[in-house]
């Protein structure tokens, strides 16, 4: 793969442990991944697989015990001062529960204005115009700007979270289970929105989920993790249609799919 935009090189993370406290728990062990610019890498795994820890490492929220993360060729651990500020503008998260990352007493406008203020972008009027345009872009009308988080449904809140993630024109968006708290019909809409925005803005994204079908919907490449290790990594088409590893096959077989259940039952009968 030529010129990856996000490069994860042999990253490990051990929690706890120490000289007299034993080896600790290895949450991520020797994971290497590369994502070309403008593509989505889906990271799938069950609880305890290390998928969220890996995402937090790429986000710079957790320091790896070993290994490096390069974004646009820069080692993120080496960033200081303005370079670090710039990294925080270019790399944006979307979390599972947007409500917990919103101040319940701030209006949506204030929530969306905060990143612009922190990074000193635009005048007051320009910021408001950008917020209104962006709300439209994520499928919410400008009237939502004056509402409070609790007045929004789960899907609307996740749309605001996506708007906040892209308001600074980032290059990278890192999403951790952004739809798993949503109803299935709302999930489908938010996934579509996510895929549309990813393509329109040419974002390089990591998308973490325990749901293989969701990963299938949005990913160009797929990484399967288990117990902190990378089990399988390849183009989505190949991983889903012709998985190489036994664990991947078992995961795929365990997903209940209403479209296949009856065909399978007939085959067994």
């Amino acid at each position: 793969m030529s010129n990856p935009f996000i490069e994860i090189r042999n990253v490990s993370k051990t929690f706890g442990g120490g000289m007299f406290r034993g080896p600790g728990v290895a949450a991520v062990e020797g994971v290497s991944l590369a994502v070309p610019r403008g593509q989505t890498l889906g990271i799938v795994g069950e609880s305890g697989s290390g998928k969220s820890t890996l995402l937090r490492i790429v986000l710079g929220l957790t320091r790896p015990s070993a290994g490096q993360v390069l974004i646009g060729g820069q080692d993120i651990a080496s960033l200081r001062g303005t370079a670090l500020r710039d990294f925080r503008r270019r790399v944006q998260p979307v979390f599972q529960n947007p409500a917990s990352s919103f101040n319940p007493r701030q209006t949506i406008r204030a929530i969306l204005r905060a990143p612009l203020e922190v990074h000193g972008i635009g005048t007051g009027r320009e910021r408001d115009a950008r917020i209104d345009a962006l709300l439209g872009h994520v499928g919410l009308g400008p009237e939502f700007a004056e509402r409070l988080p609790h007045q929004l449904s789960g899907g609307q809140k996740q749309r605001v979270a996506i708007a906040r993630a892209i308001i600074l024109d980032p290059q990278v968006v890192l999403a951790d289970e952004p739809t798993s708290a949503l109803d299935v019909s709302v999930q489908a809409q938010v996934l579509r929105l996510f895929a549309r925005i990813q393509a329109e803005l040419g974002l390089t994204t990591l998308f973490v989920s325990h749901n293989l079908a969701v990963i299938r919907q949005v990913s160009h490449q797929v990484a399967v993790m288990q117990h902190g290790r990378l089990v399988e990594f390849g183009p989505a088409e190949q991983v889903f249609r012709a998985p190489r590893e036994d664990y991947t096959r078992r995961l795929i077989a365990a997903v209940p799919d209403p479209r296949h259940a009856f065909a399978r039952k007939e085959a067994l009968a």
């Binding site: 299935v184 019909s185 999930q187 489908a188 996934l191 579509r192 895929a195 749901n211 293989l212 079908a213 969701v214 299938r216 919907q217 949005v218 990913s219 989505a236 889903f240 795929i252 997903v255 799919d257 209403p258 479209r259």
Partner: peptide, 17 residues
Amino acid sequence: RMLLAATPSLDAPLAEV
């Protein structure tokens, strides 16, 4: 029908659905 259509599928990515 809407519920069924909204259930993400393992068969194909969003673009093809």
